Computed example of a mutant assay.
Amino acid sequence: MDQILEKPVVSQTIRVGNREIFVSEAGEGPVVLMLHGGGPGASGMSNYVRNVEVLAKRFRVLVPDMPGYGRSTKGLDRKDPFGDLARSMFGLLDAMGVKTCCVVGNSLGGGCALRMALDRPDRIRRLVLMGPGGVDTTRSLPTAGLKRLFNYYKGEGPTIEKLATFIKGDLVYDASAITGELIEERFKSSVDPEVVASPPLLGPKGIPNFRAIDFTRDPRLGKLETPTLVLWGVEDRVNRPSGGLSLLKRMRRCDLHFFSRTGHWVQWERAEEFNAVTMAFLSQGDSA
């Protein structure tokens, strides 16, 4: 992390089925579940270190390490990663006594959030998706950023140089604020022996079955009534910004914001704007 949070954050590990899920919590009020991306070494609090304190002023913010990442149990169903993650997150909410919530998701977490809303729209009040995965995945070749993500554990295996290239070149537009500490923290997490033995996003042939995780081919998407805010960096090199227009076209209640000179990490690169627009959106209507 690159800063110290002033708002008290309490962390615990909760048993969900055959998994242990590590989750951090701050604030009181309506629940907001924040789901991180799927890049090497990703974790909940490192993904949202610039956002949790602001959102916790109004909401009860839950930030888990999703299965396969951080301090949670490793391993993920590669045939249906979003479905596996969604079921696990609903299990976490059940264990914490949360019936309904808003969900904020970045990249892999955005795909999980969208799958949660499609599977159980009665439990998801609002969605905020930042460069979500699973959008138009079968309509064009994988981006260079996705290829670097999938190749991280291949060849010579993980190196800090490969990770630095991915973070500085693919996750952000302006890498000047990326610290060595941030890269070292993520590298240490990425080389956990359990992760190296079974990287969460790699399928039998090295990449996921994209057709099985393309939400734009799911007929439920056009019927979804969940109010959704989509945020996308124009310079996103991991998930194509055109995905935002695809969601806008298909979803009934979708607002779309593009951020210029911004990459895949909208919530990190444009934290102040992200916090403001997300707070406003989640505060609309009854979010309890």
Rank of each mutant, 00 (worst) to 15 (best):
P208H: 01
G133Y: 02
T159I: 00
E20P: 01
F259K: 02
R19F: 02
F90S: 02
E161R: 15
V128P: 03
I124C: 12
S24V: 05
F274W: 08
L35F: 04
S283H: 09
V238Y: 08
N275Q: 06
R186L: 03
N51M: 03
K188R: 12
N151Q: 15
E25H: 08
A56C: 01
L85G: 14
F166P: 06
G145R: 06
G70Y: 09
F215V: 11
R186G: 06
Y152S: 03
F90K: 13
D255S: 14
L5S: 13
F150Q: 07
M34W: 03
L33I: 11
E28I: 05
P8E: 09
P241A: 08
V98E: 01
F150I: 02
Y173D: 13
P40G: 04
Y173Q: 12
E20K: 10
Y153H: 13
G97M: 11
F215T: 04
L149K: 10
G133L: 01
G44R: 12
K147I: 15
P40D: 02
M130T: 13
S43K: 09
L247K: 08
G17P: 03
N151L: 13
A42D: 11
V128Y: 11
S72T: 04
F166Q: 12
L76I: 14
N47W: 08
V135F: 07
L182F: 15
Q267W: 05
G222F: 15
K147L: 13
L231K: 12
V32M: 01
P132T: 05
L129R: 08
N239E: 11
T278G: 02
A212P: 06
V172T: 14
F274M: 08
G37S: 12
V63A: 01
N209P: 07
G70E: 11
D192C: 06
